[in-house]
Design a protein around this nucleic acid. Structure first.
Lengths: 349, 349
DNA sequence: CTGTTAGCGCATTCAG
DNA sequence: CTGAATGCGCTAACAG
């Protein structure tokens, strides 16, 4: 069906070995022979069979990426960072979107193992239950035994001994900045739109914020927290629940920008002015943050860089078990300001 | 390095062929033997080598997708449609983001050919120059010769004889609806934010709109058109150019929602009220359309379905040279309304 | 029901 | 500088 290396050899009147040498350019080949071979390749429109090569080399040189949802800009942005770093290394990127389903995720990892992916990158939150961690640790061992490298992006390793590199962000500093900022602006009662329960990202962001607020003497009681699922809709609904529950807050922080966008809409529909009545703060700094009005104050996460570092670490020597933390940054925009009820706010009112 | 089928055979005390039969379940194997083999597989954590299989079958069963930019929600959404359709078929999806660069695009197609991708899906606009078309037609032939199927999404085939299936949208009907709507609302002077020149999507959308407007007696002169690149920033800048150029329009159509979002910001900063002074219309109906205020009137393109149909057509018998057109829909939201200067508008003013 | 054999397409020895 | 031979891991005939 397809043209093979021997076909090329026949047409050029040389042996397969010679064609191979021309292809790889590693061994000396007479100029005349080379030209004849190159012509045959062009004439026949020959394309090497990557599988035959992979069979010899025991690896395919592909980068597998497993993420929750390709259509979510958070993941899409990390993926594009991975892709951009993979291109100059001549690596193909396989993107697998699991939809957040654990079984699908493992099915994809298995498929990537079958294809002897050189690198497997897991992006985003991971469930925090023991069974999952054990299963993942098992896959990690398997990948390692195969000679594939595993990189975890934005999620912790399932255990200390897991042979995996980790690229993550350290949001604690930015959140301390945010806490100080909110405190200075007179905010005392703060609502929080959390991510789905038992997900590493959700708990990390929430506990970091809780700690940061504590440092400035602000508590984040459970009653001020509503769960969502990192989507606009869930942010909208969670905000509605807080409002209809009679929770009084002067600032509303969200676990990501999408939820914050949903919150803005809910507040708007309830006649709450942002930032006049309530300040809204997002997380990630996705494009949506500046699409909405007023523009969203948020914690910028360097998503493209996260992806690029993941690739870099995968190809760095001794990458297993290495960890890399990227800093985030507080971006203050129009959606936040002084709390209502503060002296200053009363004066200007 | 990695565990092979023979390793399993040795451990189970059977021949490699038997292990293969257990794996594929096609031939009868004694229950006892099967169990022994299955245990060995588990003990050794054996994972089949997809390359060895692909070598026999002359295809890898992978779906390759080449698109402009993964971080662009337009492409990400189509890709997620492809992914969702590929999962139940147990197909791995390779996503290649070319950044709109032709060379990169061909490099990726070549890599996909090397990997004997079963299906190659090209998503989005294509340059409209002859050299490109010839090159693409060549690759299409090569893919066909290899036994790979080619699907073009949202772009025309380079020639009548190209062995490729095409999935596209037919926006003409919606644009006629839009033209009638705008006309009824009293709009006569309409601005247009076009996509990059010599791109199939740009010219298709522009000419369809021009035709539709013509039917209701509205012209779209070049002076009312500003070029952009399907991004927010370019939409912003293009709108600024129109405004500072003194172009007076009561409605502004954009080649996509991202540019419309940029336009809204530019208009806002210039003190132009939407939809009071100017109606804004987008294209695609991406999430950003409802993030902005007022929500964007737009032409909805069924992007997920486009991706799903692409996969379906690839696996349909006799798919080569087939064409499938999906309908779009006009979605009227808050960003559009009556033109200023019409009788009704004056009355209510 | 199971083992033996051959070959998929290629890169790499080893000889010449 | 070039050709012949070997084997990567697996499946499909072909025997038993």
């Amino acid at each position: 069906m397809a043209v093979t290396l021997s076909d090329v050899a026949d047409r050029a009147g040389v042996s397969p070995a010679t064609v191979s040498r021309v292809l790889n350019g590693n061994y000396p080949v007479a100029a005349k022979t080379r030209q004849r071979v190159e012509k045959a390749i062009r004439d026949l429109d020959y394309v090497v069979n990557a599988h035959a090569r992979a069979l010899l080399h025991a690896t395919s040189g592909m980068i597998g990426v497993v993420l929750n949802d390709l259509a979510d800009p958070f993941f899409a942005t990390v993926a594009s960072g991975i892709q951009s770093a993979a291109l100059p290394m001549q690596r193909l990127v396989i993107v697998c979107s699991s939809g957040g389903d654990q079984e699908t995720e493992f099915a994809y990892i298995e498929m990537l193992r079958r294809h002897r992916a050189e690198v497997v990158i897991l992006v985003g939150s991971s469930p925090e239950d023991a069974a999952y961690k054990r299963a993942l640790a098992g896959q990690a061992k398997g990948l390692h035994a195969q000679g594939s490298r595993l990189v975890l992006c934005g999620r912790p390793a399932p255990s200390r001994h897991t042979p995996a590199a980790v690229v993550s962000v350290d949001e604690s500093r930015s959140l301390r900045e945010l806490a100080e900022y909110l405190s200075q602006q007179g905010h005392r009662r703060i609502g929080y739109l959390a991510g789905p329960p038992n997900q590493s990202t959700s708990t990390a962001r929430r506990s970091s914020l809780t700690n940061a607020l504590q440092r400035v003497g602000i508590r984040l009681p459970d009653g001020f927290v509503a769960q969502g699922e990192f989507t606009r809709e869930s942010g909208y609904e969670a905000t509605c629940r807080l409002i209809s529950g009679g929770v009084k807050f002067t600032a509303l922080c969200a676990a990501n920008d999408l939820m914050a966008a949903g919150a803005m809409r809910a507040l708007d529909e309830s006649g709450v002015d942002v930032p006049g009545d309530v300040s809204v703060i997002g997380f990630d700094d996705l494009p949506v943050a500046t699409d909405i009005t007023p523009k969203l104050t948020t914690i910028r996460v360097p998503l493209v860089e996260v992806g690029q570092h993941a690739v870099a670490m995968a190809f760095a020597p001794e990458s297993a078990n290495r960890r890399r933390l990227l800093p985030t940054r507080l971006i203050v925009r129009g959606s936040s300001g002084r709390a209502v009820g503060t002296r200053e706010a009363r004066r200007t009112a």
